[in-house]
């Protein structure tokens, strides 16, 4: 694996300089501007300007993983690791993109068990630390397309969801798979306060049709960039379905149930006219808030060198997954 240099912000701004800056600001009373709406979703920006800038030194440790490398990069250039770690939607830890990195580091990851049940012959509980030792860990370099019209390329490490589910022997009644994120308001400030959590009903839930879940591209990720997941990326275990919008990739999973009826999905419940159950990446169907025809690429270029590219049907995985939806009106089942 190529080594990506690990730039800490201390390398960019000497500690003494930013401490001095903060003292200057505090002295002038400007800190108040950020304090006027302290719980605001946008406070993240003020935090970025005025404090909490020690994140680089307080990151939760990530363990190196053993896995089979993805040698076919499909001509994709990876999004730098520091951007994958600092640009996250994980409303349980706040709605600004930098909130999860700032607020999730204390998430207790051990022990962590996932309960698998429902329409299966062998329901059970999986200890994630055992999953991490699993010999079947594979690397998958996938495009990741957010419904907000930006995209990344991320080297995930995980196990195929289908292979994982088969251990529990799904019955013929298992038509869908339902997932649930941890519900722990003590650890997750967004679950304590509707203001911090963006007014979503928790726990976050998501679902897939069984054939989608069994598709070899569907991944239960336990790591990225060769190490275990960071809390803000959904540690210790999250879903990655690369042909769907990112919000389908439910994070920090504690429960997986095989079910007969289509399970609820959080964003779909919140705004059904904006977020469908399927949420397949589709440039032909706009979101009411964003054109989905193109996407802003998050790569190693600076903020002032924005680049966009045309969004591909099924996020570029059409030849592998389009047949799952043959005969379906994708404008209706968005």
């Amino acid at each position: 694996m190529k080594k990506i240099p690990d730039i800490k912000e201390n390398d960019v701004t000497p500690e003494a300089v930013y401490k001095q800056r903060r003292q200057l600001l505090a002295g002038m009373g400007f800190g108040l501007a950020g304090a006027s709406l302290p719980l605001s979703g946008h406070a993240g920006v003020f935090d970025g300007l005025f404090g909490k800038d020690e994140t680089a030194s307080t990151q939760a440790p990530r363990k190196p993983l053993e896995y089979k490398q993805d040698k076919s990069r499909h001509g994709l250039s990876l999004t730098p690791e520091n951007k994958v770690l600092s640009h996250n939607n994980f409303y349980e830890f706040g709605t600004a993109k930098t909130d999860p990195q700032q607020n999730a580091q204390g998430l207790k990851l051990e022990p962590w068990t996932v309960e698998v049940g429902g329409e299966v012959n062998k329901p059970g509980t999986v200890d994630v630390s055992e999953l991490l030792q699993s010999a079947t860990l594979v690397e998958r370099i996938y495009r990741m397309r957010c419904v907000e019209a930006w995209s990344m390329v991320i080297p995930w490490v995980g196990i195929e969801l289908g292979a994982f589910l088969k251990q529990f022997e799904p019955t013929s009644k298992a038509k869908y798979v339902a997932f649930q994120t941890l519900y722990d308001p003590e650890q997750m400030p967004g679950q304590r306060s509707r203001f911090v959590g963006g007014g979503i009903n928790y726990p976050y839930v998501e679902g897939l049709r069984i054939d989608e879940a069994m598709h070899p591209l569907s991944l239960l990720a336990v790591g990225l960039y060769g190490k275990t997941l960071a809390p803000q990326n959904g540690a210790p275990l999250r879903l990655v379905v690369p042909w769907k919008y990112g919000f389908k990739g439910i994070k920090s999973i504690v429960k997986i149930s095989l079910v007969e009826k289509q399970p609820p999905a959080t964003w779909n419940l919140l705004a059904p006219q904006e977020y469908g159950f399927y949420a397949n990446v589709n440039p032909a169907v706009d979101h009411p808030r964003w054109s989905q025809a193109s996407e802003r690429i998050i790569d190693n270029s600076s903020v002032f060198e924005a680049k966009r590219k045309a969004t591909l049907p099924f996020n570029g995985y059409a030849d592998q997954v389009a047949e799952l939806y043959s005969g379906m009106d994708l404008k209706k089942y968005y």
Partner: peptide, 14 residues
């Protein structure tokens, strides 16, 4: 803050 990475790796939204 933006050029020093204090708004995260991808500060557009911020």
């Amino acid at each position: 803050a933006a050029i020093n990475g204090k708004l995260g790796g991808e500060p557009v939204e911020a």
